[in-house]
Design a protein around this nucleic acid. Sequence first.
DNA 1: TAGCCTCGAGTTCA
DNA 2: CTCGAGGCTA
Length: 693
Amino acid sequence: MGQPDDGGAAARIEQLRRLIEYHNHRYYVLDAPEIADHEYDALFRELQDLEASHPELVTPNSPTQRVGAPPVESFAPAPHAFPMLSLANAFDANDLREFDARCKRMLGMGPEAIIEYTVEAKIDGLGISLTYEQGHFVRGATRGDGTTGEDVSANLRTIRAIPTILPDGLGLPSSFEVRGEVFLSKTEFARINAERGIEGLPLFANPRNAAAGTIRQLDSSVAARRRLQARFYDIRSDGRIPASTQLEVVELLRSAHFPTNDPTQMALGVEEVVRLCGEAEHTHSALDFAVDGMVVKVNSLALQAELGQVSRSPRWAIAYKFPPERARTRVLRIVAQVGRTGAVTPVAEMEPVFLDGSTVSRATLHNEDEVRRKDVRIGDFVWIQKAGDIIPEVVEVDVAARSGDEQEFAMPAECPVCGGAVVREEGEAVARCSNPLCVAKLKTGLQHFASRRAMDIDGLGPAIIEQLVDRGLVRDFADLYQLTHEQLAGLDRMAGKSAANLLAAIEASKRTSLARLVFALGIRHVGEHVADVLASHMGSLERLRSATEDELSSIHEIGPQIAASVAGFFADPRAQALLDRLVAAGLTWEEARSTSNMEDAFIAGKTFVFTGKLEHMTREEAEALVRSRGGRAASSVSAKTHCVVAGPGAGSKLDKARELGIEVMSEDEFLSKLGSPPDADNPTGPHQQSLAF
DNA sequence: TAGCCTCGAGTTCA
DNA sequence: CTCGAGGCTA
């Protein structure tokens, strides 16, 4: 721009980019180059030269940028426009048949119906999502927690097979995300490790770890030197996707120049699926990349939509997992570990053995019943495997190898840490230390209190907690807020600097939220979600700490067990004293909004059931209306229903409501109650709660 | 009362 | 990640 010849240069640059991307596709995806390497190099050099003399025309998507960008400090968070789901697992043919039966049931098909499925290899790599706008690559992200990943665009650009500029005329929407897997071939993995060996660097345990390490490289020129590969299998958009089956999706991706996960096979009915999965089990090891199973999907996108999803996994797909690698080792001891709730867990300590990328020496045995069921004895030779590729698990005992000297494990009658009585409640699988002052409970309880999702006290780990408790400096959560610099600096592995950091972290944790505090307290049955429900329903600590059991159990999602546990916790004067001390220490949080503009005093927080015929709206509309104003719409009447809106023809639900003494009203009454628009003058802004009681 | 579905709790190694 | 258990719905 500005200079007279830039128009021509810009046009040539654009032309070269498209040409080079075209040849990248021929070479890296189709494995069918059309031109000789030196011709390609000539095009590339011409582009480089032009860009060098016109630096203002360099864009991130230029093929010249695929050699890596300057290192970054950290990766930016990248929210996914569509959540990245995970798949349910199948471990044998029966699981596959159950999956098929469930699909048919949910689709209202008979057992004899035949569903079309696709079957493809499940590559053992890392899930990624690429965003394209107007046919151009704009961002690539890791899976993360499925909702938000990390922006690793620079590293992904180094993968030549990933198109940065898409061909026109495919009817693709203007904006979409493409989902796939990045991985390293076994060959490339071996090459990288050989190189690292020569340089004296630690070796990667397996291709997956190496790929993970590469994709999270802050310096993308490192990633550029390791030839990552990618395969894609899905596309998500708000716009219309020109495909009606999974197979067509794959074809669409292929014509858009994406490397696809080939072959994606079609299977008519579940028995065909079982056969393909069985075959793959024997053939996959010949591939040059790691495959840990097969992905089975309902082919029709319409049926996929009908099946929908549960939580974070679709009901229309399942991952068939190949049996994982196993190793044989010996159980040296079975120790009893005490957790935050006092749960005494048997853990097998074994002769260290290398398995699937790491050395394993411990595995949980969960509880007494599990030990008995597997009949694991001290001194036994056992087969172990990794559940979900990570957590070691004892699969079975090599009974034939027994000498007769093996010893059975007995759950200790006394807590191995404090000597308190270990009690196993009727009908429960776990045994627990019954001493409320057990030091093990205190230490793990403090770890939980300080954890990221609770009070988020950075730097307060197990080693520090150990010392704080052993030296009598901390006897409960509130003591943390009385610690001094001298006390902290006196600990092992704690210099003045770290002590100051920890103090600052403790100070910073004072600004929190009610939900976090409630979660941090470690009340039984109260995890993150329940803490959130309690905090938002009660609104304030004062209300929560004095709530009755009945009051608690009337809350949606809070049943008798949780209500009893929460009420029981606050009934203890020591708990009340602890709260007083925490509050006195200066904990503050923003008071939960009791009502907001979107809510309506009549509807908010209540559960409605619509029954019979509605005159002015459909049931869906009525339910959406309730939800939009902060209420809940249920489909059946229970003790937790607040109001039943009955139209003509109402039947058993109306009877049940009368029986339970629940408020019943007509559609007109319901509508007139909503007559006034939501309050405009609500005090909605969050404000600091004063904590001096 | 059964059958989902979600949540809580415990867990391994680098 | 997996198990067990709590809560909701039909």
